[in-house]
Amino acid sequence: MTSEHITLYFKQGGSDKVYNASLEEVKDNRFVVNFAYGRRGATLTTGTKTNTPLDYDSAKKIYAKLVKSKTSKGYVPGAEGPQYVHTDADTRDTGVQCQLLNFIEEAEAERLIKAPDWWAQEKYDGKRMLLRKTETVTAINRQGLSVDAPDAIITSAGSIDQSYLVDGEAVGDTLFVFDLLAIDGTDLRSAPYGQRLAQLEILGFGEAVVVAETAKTPREKQQFYDRLRASGAEGIVFKQHVAPYTTGRPNSGGTQVKFKFYATASVVVTQINAKRSVAVAVLDGEQSIEIGNVTIPPNKDIPAVNAIIEVRYLYAYPGGSLYQPTYLGPRDDLHVQDCVIAQLKYKS
């Protein structure tokens, strides 16, 4: 009775995906079935099919069923293409850092709507993605690592003759860009945001790269805010239009801030429970604070211990758990250090 592993690939049209499945012995002839999946060359999302270690025969049945389910959908072993090779983060480090935003409360959002020196854009419910175009187009995540991106985005980004560096949020096969950091070798990060945005709006990307809509006057911002909230959008971002692009996250406030219409949190999985539930925690300094359990829907894979996931919730109890948490999905673009207790919204 030994461990087993298989790497499967699926390539069709714009899809180029990899799926790793493994049957692993953990101790005393007890086995787990783990998996990892995603676009080829990107950071893979990990999870498990076994809540607790099982005997070999039981785990083998789960492993065989998992492999069969993937091959029946068109996945094939590695002979169909180059095998996925994991690369360490430092070998993919682009040296690019992005500006990170602090959250604000509703009262502050209402103040910024009326402030003439602040503009507003939608806070998209996707993943942060920068694009750097030189001879080729490189997609970069919020950690500064080169990552895979949908073919439609790469194709649209390559349709522009100039070299550039833009910042945005990827939602499915569309990238919503909201900042221009460099153009034809000129670094624009020290220029006012209004100037950067004006140059971004005239670049003329293809259809899969869209410049974010911007509301500028108090009236436009109020109408924009009301429309976003009514449509079920995730939130709104406010930006001081005379401010430069500042990498990293300030200790508080900042020249760009965000307000969410509903509460979400990035949390760490600490334990896999029975009945498709996982225990989650956040960090308070160096201390891990348990904040309850989250049910994983039947159509979703159970995330592994130490995985980072996103959950939506109504509110948090001070010193206690999240109320009515809902699993949204994995967050493979974040570090554990991003899962801080300060992001929680408490019942008033």
Rank of each mutant, 00 (worst) to 15 (best):
S3F: 07
H5L: 15
I6A: 07
F10G: 09
Q12K: 15
Q12M: 11
V18G: 03
Y19V: 04
N20Y: 13
S22C: 14
E25M: 09
D28Y: 13
R30W: 08
N34Q: 03
A36D: 09
R39I: 12
R40V: 08
T45P: 01
G47Q: 01
K49I: 09
K49T: 12
N51H: 13
T52H: 14
K61L: 14
I62V: 13
A64R: 15
V67A: 13
V67K: 11
K68T: 13
K70A: 12
S72I: 06
S72G: 10
G74C: 12
Y75C: 05
V76L: 13
P77C: 02
G81H: 13
G81I: 11
Y84T: 07
D88R: 14
T91S: 12
T94V: 10
T94K: 07
Q97D: 10
L101K: 07
L101T: 07
F103E: 14
E105Y: 09
I113G: 12
P116V: 11
D117I: 07
E122T: 07
G126M: 14
M129K: 02
T136H: 09
V137Q: 03
I140C: 04
L145K: 13
S146E: 15
D148R: 14
I153C: 08
S156F: 02
G168L: 01
A170W: 08
F176T: 00
V177T: 06
F178E: 04
F178D: 07
L180P: 10
L181T: 11
D184K: 03
D184T: 00
S190V: 15
P192Q: 02
Y193V: 02
G194M: 03
Q195Y: 12
Q195G: 03
L200W: 08
E201K: 15
L203C: 02
G204K: 04
G204C: 03
F205R: 01
V209R: 01
V209F: 05
K216D: 05
K216Y: 03
T217W: 15
E220K: 11
E220R: 10
K221N: 10
K221M: 06
K221L: 11
D226Q: 06
L228N: 04
G235Q: 04
F238K: 00
V242H: 12
P244V: 04
Y245M: 09
T246S: 07
T246Q: 05
P250S: 01
N251W: 07
S252N: 14
G253N: 07
Q256W: 11
K258F: 03
S266L: 11
V269M: 00
T270H: 00
R276N: 06
S277I: 02
V278L: 02
A279E: 05
S288N: 06
S288M: 10
S288T: 13
E290M: 01
V294P: 15
I296Y: 02
P297R: 00
P298G: 01
N299R: 05
A304K: 10
V305Q: 03
I308S: 04
I309V: 07
E310N: 10
R312E: 14
A316Q: 08
A316R: 09
G319T: 15
S321Q: 14
L322H: 15
Y323A: 11
T326Y: 08
T326M: 11
G329F: 04
D333F: 05
L334F: 12
H335V: 01
H335M: 10
Q337N: 08
C339Q: 07
I341K: 02
L344A: 01
K345L: 09
K345R: 13
S348W: 09
S348Q: 09
